[in-house]
């Protein structure tokens, strides 16, 4: 564990809590892509199956259980409890165009051709693009609430901090995982346009609005 990974994990945790708080306080999931949230639940469910096969640390296990359970809770809130507020008309990204190619790639490019390893690889690839339905939704509506922007900033920062963690681990531990690094870079690049808007608008007290 190094400082970059710890702050990254805390940023990820903060993002999830922010999203849940936003939904709970406003009794609404307006502006949130249910498709992205389903993909995140799928990411955690397929990656953390190793909870049953290998123990790393209490921290590791607690975080995994937290991520799986909160992602399922988020999906439940969006599709059941607050369904009436879900903006499905704008959440029209075709997720099969992500899941199918990513599944194929996980079969072809992985560290080891075994079920758990392929599922882990699938989750890494899927996570890198899982935010696309959310970004697509924002480009369709042309706006994002400030709290949604904070959520996205925390969520995007997490993987950017992991890149610093991988640089650190490469130099100080000789650790290098090509699959995680490439996917993590792709993931972070997808957020760059949003990061720019966040820094130039939200941090100056304005909402994010996009030209039509």
């Amino acid at each position: 564990m190094n400082i970059f990974r710890l702050i990254g994990d805390m940023s990820h945790l903060l993002a999830i809590i922010l999203l849940l708080l936003k939904m709970w306080k406003t009794r609404s999931c307006a502006g949130i892509s249910g498709k992205s949230q389903i993909l995140f639940a799928l990411v955690f469910a397929s990656r953390y199956l190793d909870l049953f096969t290998s123990f790393v640390s209490v921290y590791n296990s607690v975080m995994k259980i937290f991520f799986i359970s909160t992602s399922l809770l988020t999906v439940y809130l969006m599709y059941f409890k607050f369904r009436a507020t879900y903006d499905s008309n704008h959440d029209t990204f075709r997720v099969e165009f992500l899941v199918i190619p990513v599944g194929g790639l996980a079969f072809l490019v992985n560290h080891e051709f075994s079920p758990l390893e392929i599922l882990w690889t699938f989750s890494i690839y899927l996570e890198s693009v899982a935010i696309l339905p959310q970004l697509f939704m924002m480009s369709k509506t042309g706006e994002a609430e400030t709290i949604t922007s904070h959520y996205l900033f925390a969520l995007g920062s997490y993987r950017a901090l992991y890149i610093l963690n991988w640089v650190y681990r490469y130099y100080f531990e000789g650790f290098f995982d090509l699959i995680a690094v490439v996917a993590g870079c792709v993931q972070t690049i997808l957020y760059c346009d949003f990061f720019y808007l966040y820094i130039t608008k939200v941090l100056k007290g304005k909402r994010i609005t996009l030209p039509a």
């Binding site: 790393v56 995994k64 080891e112 390893e117 882990w120 890494i124 963690n165 650790f175 699959i179 995680a180």
Partner: peptide, 10 residues
């Protein structure tokens, strides 16, 4: 850990 993925990470 060898060539297998970054399993100690989240």
């Amino acid at each position: 850990k060898g060539a297998k993925g970054a399993k100690d990470e989240l």
